[in-house]
């Protein structure tokens, strides 16, 4: 859905741009392809690593490891797994559901979902390229800590 909307938006914008100014549009597309190709080797590396990770740390293995964990150790384990893996959203939510079914508590699931979305260890080199080491470290570090807060609050509210 999001992909379709995004491609339609990009196509419509390109067509409108073409009708207004061909030269400018050509320049825009050149800028787009140049910056895409420039970052592609780094993205390729990240994606290859994620592919390896998803194979050896498959959803089945993750739920086996995290499913029965509880307490602070369970939260820590969930936070570490969530931070180091990069799982697409449409896989992540069903995976979280299966963790819940396996007996993991709400705080563990919350911290897993939160770190999965906010903390990216594999994408850190990429983030560093775009911003800086310091910004990457601070953003990921704070997100990691924030996820614990989210987990505690959610664990207290949801029974």
């Amino acid at each position: 859905m999001f992909t379709v909307a995004l491609y339609l938006l990009a196509a419509a914008a390109t067509v409108i741009s073409l009708t207004r100014d061909r030269k400018k549009t050509a320049k825009a597309l050149r800028i787009a392809s140049n910056s895409f190709l420039r970052i592609l080797p780094d993205f390729g590396t990240v994606l290859a690593l994620v592919g390896i990770m998803l194979t050896f740390l498959s959803p089945a293995i993750i739920s086996a490891v995290l499913g029965r964990q509880s307490g602070l150790w369970g939260m820590l384990a969930a936070a570490v797994v969530g931070s180091t893996t990069l799982i697409p959203g449409f896989v992540a939510f069903p995976l979280a559901k299966s963790l819940l079914d396996c007996g993991a508590g709400v705080p563990q699931i919350a911290i897993f979902v939160s770190t999965l979305m906010m903390v990216g260890v594999v994408t850190a080199p990429l983030e560093t390229k775009y911003f800086s080491k310091r910004v990457t470290f601070i953003r990921n570090g704070l997100s990691f800590l924030f996820s614990f807060l989210v987990a505690y609050v959610m664990g207290a509210i949801i029974r």
Partner: peptide
């Protein structure tokens, strides 16, 4: 699914 259209939009 996401990057190419984002780069096109950013180029424009």
């Amino acid at each position: 699914g996401v990057l190419p259209p984002i780069f096109v939009l950013l180029g424009l």
